[in-house]
């Protein structure tokens, strides 16, 4: 089997390259004038200006709270069970009876609730599985951290008083 040469010969128009350069320069000048004189950009000045994503965007998780700032999570482990990336780790315990105005509804609580954001694939299954609407995915997409340990978020970090999926 020999090598098959598939390259074709340049046409006369292609050989005279100047017309193509001029077409390119025309586009460049058009964009320059649009951006410089009329302030029309396709990019944004991140991080001063943030991109506005749709409400369906799945960013970092949070755990919703009720009006007493108690987490809605009852440590049912459904999110941990469904998580395909195995990034959620819960430890459950009984809520102290004296500090439990909710009775049987919130007798179980998470002692620790860790999400490893580096493992997470933001599929949103946890939110779908949650029977208490406790774990939700917010619009927060700024998840840069300087070490792997910082990317493991605990209950104190995740507990948020939010307006739907957005910050209040």
């Amino acid at each position: 089997m020999g090598t098959i040469n598939v390259s074709k010969k340049y046409t006369a128009k292609e050989k005279a390259y100047l017309p193509a350069i001029l077409i390119g320069m025309k586009i460049t000048m058009k964009r320059f004038i649009q951006g410089f004189l009329f302030r029309k950009h396709d990019t944004i000045m991140y991080p001063e200006k943030k991109r506005d994503y749709s409400d369906r965007f799945r960013g970092m998780h949070f755990i919703s709270v009720d009006k007493n700032k108690t987490e809605n999570c009852t440590a049912c482990y459904l999110c941990e069970t469904i998580c395909p990336a195995e990034c959620i780790h819960i430890v459950a315990d009984e809520r102290d009876e004296e500090h439990n105005p909710y009775g049987v509804k919130k007798e179980k609580k998470p002692v620790s609730f860790d999400i490893d954001a580096l493992r997470c694939c933001f599929c949103g299954f946890c939110e779908e599985a949650c029977p208490k609407d406790a774990i939700k995915l917010s619009g927060n997409y700024e998840l840069a951290v300087s070490s792997r340990e910082e990317a493991i978020y605990d209950l104190d970090h995740l507990k948020r008083d939010m307006n739907g999926r957005r910050e209040k």
Binding site: T74, C76, L78, V104, K105, E107, K108, P131, K132
Partner: peptide
Amino acid sequence: LDCPVCDKA
């Protein structure tokens, strides 16, 4: 319907 909290689930 408290299966999420119930240990028997």
